[in-house]
Every structure is written in structure tokens, then in C-alpha cells.
Design a protein around this nucleic acid. Structure first.
Lengths: 195, 195
DNA sequence: AAAATAGATTGATCTTTGTCAAGCCTATTT
DNA sequence: AAATAGGCTTGACAAAGATCAATCTATTTT
């Protein structure tokens, strides 16, 4: 049995509102449980991101591959996050990103059209979307500011302080890429900062 | 007479909906016209950003100052944009940013509480907010990707291609800071890329 | 158990970008 | 007209980070 409870809890927690039994039925009827195994792709560059998925379990990376074949990780996503390239999802245009499972995953997925028609009318859900949108705006601003005004070392320190569970959960080469550094550089930063 | 027409047009264009005469009255009653002269501050670090302002005319920079006294420009804002540090505006906590007029400005400003009470209930307005939030999510994602995966030169080329009017309107040292570069580095990039 | 794979580290070297100082040009301001 | 301030460029040098290659270890896979 798939765990819709995680999604219900999440919506109620963020929105500060309660989901009625009816609301829950609507959600259960339209979100489809899906399993993604480690190394499987949720989205491939060039495809349209038709679904967004609420992550019940597992983790994924969103990344591009440049001309030299190097990966650049834009996002690392874990439980209670939404998995999607939102540009492609909203505009239904081909994505420039890949999304790949880093662990076996369980998600609850849905299309944009179904969200608009059936899910958004649920008051708790649209309230959650507003909160989420504010949180995203704030987080994006913070990350951008780090990026233009701090060194790699300072960005790494900030990550340790604010998201310590990320450091434990993901290998260092992925963290490096997320910070816009090479694995070698992050290794050296850690070596020097431990002095 | 202050130009509310710019705001009406903007809301209708983004939302795809029409504002009734009543809607327009509500807007005119709650947004306050304000003039800000070149070099004046709209927001100072440490203060709470109580207002957001729709820019009818003029331009501003949002920036931090680091320990060495160097400015880092997070945002350059012009007509038809909203002026605010949204983190501070939403959460009513002290801002880490300064916002300063780069030209004489005319804005229409309003508090968060008034937006929630009187403005959000206007259907065209809340539809506009949804579109705006999607656009912001997409723009933030694009900028972040540039930042982690491209060199200064590539980021500058992208800015020329996507926002050529920015290059014409603002001095090169501000553009450099926005790109996370020093003025000297941008000067050299331009010199080399013209070959 | 052996082989293959993924990840971390280190050294040597190269590239990109920052820092500091000086000079120049242009548009104000006085 | 002189003075000033803002902005752009250049040079010499320093620092941050990337690249390439090699090695080591731990974990999977077979």
C-alpha cells in the first residue's frame, strides 16, 4: 500500500489547513503511485516533463550535461519535495534537464492539467502552493546571493550549517557539483578548513 | 497625476483577465504613489521591508555589502517589476539587502497586509500572482544553472542575448556585479570576446 | 573470492578571476 | 574654465578553482 499519508501530512502542515475526507479521496484518485529504481530516469533532456511527483521516499538529482560531458547538478531532492523541471512542467516545452534517482524511490505523480482541474480547487492545496511559492522565492534568492558573493569554501560552510543531512546523505562529488565546484576542489577545501 | 494605468495594464496582461471599475477603485485606494530620487534608498539593510512597489518609472539595484566593503548586486529592477526584498516582505524580518534607486523613480507601493486583505481577492490580481510566481521560479532556475555551469564570459553572452536593454541601460560595473564578476574582469572579457 | 565500479585524495600544472594601482575619458558640478 | 566624480581600461601580480593523471579504498557485482 502506497503512503498517501505523507502527502496529506505535508499539505496540512504547510497550508495550516485540514483536508476533509472528500479532499483526500480526490487526491488519492488523481495522484498515481510510482516506483523508480536507483539510476532510473524520471526525466530525460529533450522530453517534456509531463508529471510532477511528490517524493514519499528516496532521493534524486536534477542535472545538465555540458559539451565536455560534465554533469552540473542544479538540485538534489529528497522526501517531502516535489520532483519536476517546473519550466518544462508549466510550459510543456522540452526540458534541458535530466532527473535521475539516486536511491530507490516512491513518488506520487500527477499531470499539470489534473492539478489545475481537480487539485487546485482544494483550499488546503492551493494554500500550500502559495506557501511553497514563497519558500521557493526565498530559497532561490539566498542561493543566488551565495553564488555571486561567496567563495566555494563559504558556500560549503553554509551548506553544512543549514542542510547537514545533505552532507551525510549524498557523496561528496554530488555535493561539489551542487555547489558549482569540482570534486577535487571540494576535497581540498575540506582538507584546508579542518586546520 | 500618477499613472495607475501601467499597473492595470500589467495585471491584465499577465493574468489574461479584465479589471472591473470596482477592481480599479480598490487598487487605486490601497496602492500609494511614491517618488524616489536617484541615490535614495527604498530599503536599508537591517530594516524590515514593509512595502512592495510596482515600478511605473525608473530603475533600482538590490545589493549586499560584504566585510571588505564590496557591493554585490543581486537584482536590477526596472519598469513593470516589483521592488522588494520578498524574504523580508513576506516574513517581516530584518532584511540583509539594500535597495537603492539608480534613476529617479515612480512607484506604487503597498503593505503585505493590505495585499492579503483587499488586493488578493481581486481575481485578476491573484491570477497575475500565480503567473508571476511561475515566471520567477523559471527565471531563478535559469540563473542558478548559469551560475553553477557557465564561465563569466558565457553568462555575459547570455545576458546580451536575453536582456540586451539591460546592457544599454546600466553601466558596466553594475552589470559585472550582477554577473558575480569584478568590473576589471568584465572589461577584459569584452575585450577578448570582440576578437 | 575475484573483478569491476564508485568515490576520495593528492600532486603538478593551467585557466579564470580577483586585487591593487595608475591613467584616461566624459559628464556633471562649481 | 576648472574641478570633480563616475566609469572604463590596462598592467602586474595573487588567489581560487579546473584539469589531468595516478593512487587508494570501500563497496558492489559477478
Amino acid at each position: 500500500m502506497h503512503n498517501f499519508e505523507a502527502l496529506f501530512d505535508y499539505v496540512q502542515r504547510l497550508s495550516g489547513k485540514t483536508l476533509s475526507a472528500d479532499d483526500k479521496h480526490i487526491i488519492t484518485a488523481h495522484f498515481k503511485p510510482k516506483k523508480i529504481r536507483k539510476r532510473q530516469y524520471f526525466l530525460q533532456e529533450g522530453d517534456v516533463c509531463k508529471y510532477t511527483g511528490f517524493i514519499v521516499k528516496g532521493a534524486a538529482k536534477t542535472f545538465t550535461v555540458d559539451e565536455k560531458g560534465h554533469e552540473h547538478i542544479l538540485k538534489l531532492s529528497i522526501e517531502d519535495w516535489w520532483l519536476a523541471d517546473f519550466e518544462s512542467f508549466y510550459t510543456l516545452t522540452p526540458s534541458r534537464f535530466n532527473i535521475e534517482a539516486l536511491e530507490d524511490m516512491e513518488i506520487l505523480q500527477i499531470t499539470h492539467a489534473l492539478v489545475e482541474e481537480f487539485i487546485k480547487p482544494i483550499p488546503a492545496f492551493s494554500a500550500m502552493q502559495n506557501v511553497l511559492s514563497q519558500n521557493n522565492t526565498i530559497a532561490a534568492q539566498k542561493r543566488m546571493q551565495s553564488s555571486i558573493s561567496q567563495t566555494g569554501e563559504e558556500r560549503f560552510q553554509e551548506l553544512i550549517n543549514h542542510y547537514p543531512h545533505f552532507i551525510q546523505r549524498f557523496p561528496q562529488n554530488l555535493i561539489a557539483s551542487y555547489l558549482g565546484l569540482t570534486p577535487e576542489t571540494l576535497s581540498r577545501i575540506r582538507k584546508n578548513s579542518s586546520k
